[in-house]
Design a protein around this nucleic acid. Structure first.
Lengths: 374, 374
DNA sequence: TTGTAGGCGTTATCAT
DNA sequence: ATGATAACGCCTACAA
């Protein structure tokens, strides 16, 4: 302690205007600048933000010294004073796999433009961590929260903590419908509908779908879209069309089961990247030709389908765009303060998906009359 | 303003001990608690951190009220007071692709255990952003910085700003050797050496390597390892063994060129995930059988090789482990303060890689005498 | 055992 | 045009 004080005194006493050269030292504050120039801290504060009251001469002198001393405003102090930080809490179930990395990139880019920074708070698919993360947001006085729920979050019970925080919230990707917050999601129903429809249009007649956990909102929506597409067409009823899996390994098992049936499917819909990655190898190695004997389609963030063999036709769920939209919405909320209004219910935003045709589905024109394999 | 004051007064005047029910309100502070209990804020502060001086009765009473009012300490204020935050700045060239997501997960898990939070600062492979991010760290008074350099950072020139910050720094993955900071890297030379050696051991004799940007440290090291392995064995000299590429598309071109030569390679080493993803399709579609006619090996974080077809034997560079080690090292630095010592040069840590044999290389026992394809 | 006072860095609101 | 002061929320040496 005493030692440090000594160093600091040296710092102050070296009043010669030499270049700043002491690393790992007490950081330069407004006070330091004021002291060296014999003016009041508030004067410095004003000068640094170009307040017109301060005379031009003094103003530039102050700025120059600030530059020389490598002055950087202390955000913590500013936050404290102004009761609002430029930090945004980002709570996601995971960081690692598909999709979230590009969402994060979208979020990050928008936030950076507006001078906000991101605190990353993965909840590892645990509700406990979800709550904890919300509290960390609170403690760090974040200006806003972006939240993708963990897969096990089916009820809004534990999300009451959000209200304590007092910051606006934008839900994205994994959401609950009945929460009074803004949300940005992909078109789940529609995408599954379009994907399945595409299988039908290109000649598939015995279509099976591999889905995620049955309890998930996105599973339910995609399943509905899948069913709707099938029900609209007068195609064979294919028993046990839908199977459910929690991870790539499960998905592989599902696919393997499908490919050992006495009547093989001629079209397979995979709900996510995680599923296609497990399922495709099982389909390929079963010996059926893709797409000649069996078409495959999935919904994806758009990277994986190109890595697989054959490359898989997919509905592009653009994570980057979703991230951008969610971040923009959050900034709008912060700046408008709209979320404070008593009955504010939140705006619901949907992001459209786009069909990308690759090698795993037959081309549209090659109208195959009926499934003819096996 | 006046409006808000009014609300606050209501808050204070409702002294009945009803449950806390006003969301989106001024947050509860130590003062609030003190006021309601008619004690001094410092008493509350002490009670909340179990200072033994405070009488048990009062202490529990205070804690109960704090609980009821959902008191959360304001980190910003604590940081300011204690001159040290629990925030760590994480600066990476990108978030999106391979490797970094798992590194981040490793970092995050360790930091969370120790009560630190992460500010994400992607620099998008731009030196400018790198500097800017370092300054953001400074402004937010981070307790430490984790830094993976952008690919264009070859000199330490612009990194002098790091010294201003006064926080410990741990470099990881993309580093410069001559910086006086701790660093955690993967064994580049060794991994390339082992990978190439594996090709030789399984019978390859005309080996080519596809590398990243020539200027990168990791390219140079991996190239050296590659060359060493080859030079140690009395195998054919294969001209233009090494080609260089900046992205998957380049890598694809390289591979395509390789596969149109009059004498085809019978073993190909790909330096990274980014490269194998471009190269493998080009190799496959050229018609050569993998691994019968040409083996393929790469260095990878361990996910992609399983997605490809055929699955690619690889040296596993464990990003998760690297992240953990780097974070642990940073925490050690923060807590020991060792980095403050004048001549501190930083500790250099290497993470070992592990060979994972998949389908793209011939099994060891099947000793093929000489390359016999073509 | 508890209260008092000062300060972390900044800025808004006075007053000069 | 500039200075003085107080306050944001918290902590702690010191006083009582």
């Amino acid at each position: 302690m005493i030692f440090i004080d000594k160093i600091m005194q040296e710092h102050f006493s070296q009043n010669k205007k030499s270049d700043y050269q002491f690393s790992r030292m007490k950081r330069t504050t407004i006070k330091d600048i004021a002291q060296q120039l014999g003016v009041n801290p508030s004067t410095v504060s004003r000068a640094l933000k170009d307040h017109p009251d301060i005379g031009l001469a003094l103003r530039t002198e102050i700025k120059q010294l600030a530059e020389r001393l490598h002055y950087r405003p202390n955000h913590m102090a500013v936050y404290l004073r102004q009761r609002s930080s430029r930090l945004i809490g980002l709570i996601t179930p995971e960081v690692t796999m598909f999709f979230y990395p590009s969402v994060i990139r979208g979020i990050q880019n928008v936030l950076h433009e507006h001078g906000y920074n991101l605190i990353m708070l993965p909840s590892n698919e645990s509700q406990e961590r979800e709550i904890e993360n919300i509290q960390i947001c609170h403690q760090n006085d974040v200006a806003g929260i972006m939240l993708a729920l963990s897969r096990y979050t089916q009820t809004s019970e534990h999300l009451k903590v959000l209200e304590e925080v007092g910051a606006p919230v934008v839900l994205f990707d994994k959401i609950l419908d009945d929460l009074p917050y803004d949300s940005v999601v992909l078109e789940d129903f529609e995408s599954a509908y379009v994907a399945t429809k595409h299988l039908i249009k290109t000649g598939c007649r015995r279509i099976a779908g591999i889905f995620g956990n049955r309890n998930l909102r996105i599973t339910q929506l995609r399943l509905e879209g899948f069913r709707k597409a099938i029900s609209e067409h007068d195609i064979e009823f294919y028993p046990d069309q839908a199977c459910f899996s929690d991870n790539p390994y499960d998905a592989e098992k599902c696919a393997r089961e499908l490919m050992t049936r006495s009547v093989l499917p001629d079209g397979i819909f995979a709900m996510t990247d995680e599923i296609i990655i497990g399922a495709l190898p099982a389909i390929s190695t079963s010996g059926v030709k893709i797409p000649a004997e069996c078409s495959v389609i999935c919904i994806s963030d758009g990277f994986l389908p190109y890595c697989l063999h054959p490359q898989v036709t997919f509905l592009h769920h653009n994570g980057y765009e979703l991230g951008q939209l969610a971040a923009q919405q959050l900034i709008r909320l912060i700046e408008s303060g709209a979320y404070r209004e008593p009955g504010y219910a939140g705006e619901k935003i949907m992001v459209k998906a786009r069909l990308v045709e690759l090698a795993s589905t037959r081309p549209l024109e090659k109208k195959v009359g009926r499934g003819n394999n096996q």
